[in-house]
Amino acid sequence: MDTRLTFVTLAVTDLAATRRFYVDGLGWAPAFEAEGEVIFFRVGPTVMLSLWTRAGFEAEVGPLAAGGGIPPLTLSHNLPDTAGVDRVMKDAAAAGAEIVRPAQQREWGGYSGYFADPDGFRWEVAYNPGPLGVELMQAAGLA
C-alpha cells in the first residue's frame, strides 16, 4: 500500500445542520451529495472529506464508541499567513462554529486557533512558517 489518503469520513449527528454549517456558513461546494445520507467535499486534488450520517456510518462500518469527550482527531486548514488564520476563524464563528481556542502565537513558531463544527470535530486553522508548512502552501499554490 502506498502512502496516500483519499477520503476522511466523519460520522455526523445531524446532516442537515452539518450541511448548513459547511455549505451555507463556510461556502463549501459539495462534490457529491446523497440527500439525507452523505455529503462529499473535495479538500485537495485527490482528497475528499465525507460527512456521513451516524446511522449510515454504523450500518457499514460498525458501532461507534460510546463515551464522553471530543472525537480524538483534528482536521487542519493551513494558510500562508496569520491574517488568513484570523479571517477563517472569524468566518467559522460567523457560520456558527464554537471557537475552542482563539488564534495565537504558538511555542513551535506558528500561529493557530481551533474551532468546533456542529458535531464537535475540531478544526485547527494554522500558519506554519516551518519548512513543512511552506512546502504544503507551495504545493497548494498559495506561496
Rank of each mutant, 00 (worst) to 15 (best):
M1Y: 09
R4T: 15
L5D: 03
T6H: 14
A11H: 08
A11F: 11
V12D: 02
T13F: 01
T13Y: 01
D14V: 07
T18A: 10
R20E: 15
R20P: 02
V23K: 07
D24T: 12
D24G: 05
G25V: 08
L26K: 01
L26D: 02
A34F: 09
G36N: 03
G36P: 01
G36F: 13
E37L: 12
E37P: 01
G44I: 10
T46L: 08
V47A: 13
M48H: 07
M48L: 15
L49G: 04
S50R: 05
R54G: 04
R54L: 03
G56R: 09
F57Y: 15
E58M: 07
A59P: 01
P63A: 15
P72L: 08
L73C: 08
T74H: 07
S76V: 06
H77K: 07
A83I: 03
V85Y: 00
D86Y: 00
D86A: 01
D86P: 00
A92R: 00
A93P: 00
A94W: 00
A97E: 04
I99A: 03
V100Q: 11
R101H: 11
W108H: 13
G109C: 09
Y114F: 14
F115K: 02
A116W: 09
E124C: 12
A126Y: 04
N128F: 14
P129S: 10
P129A: 08
L132G: 03
G133A: 04
L136R: 14
A140S: 11
L142D: 06
L142E: 10
L142V: 02
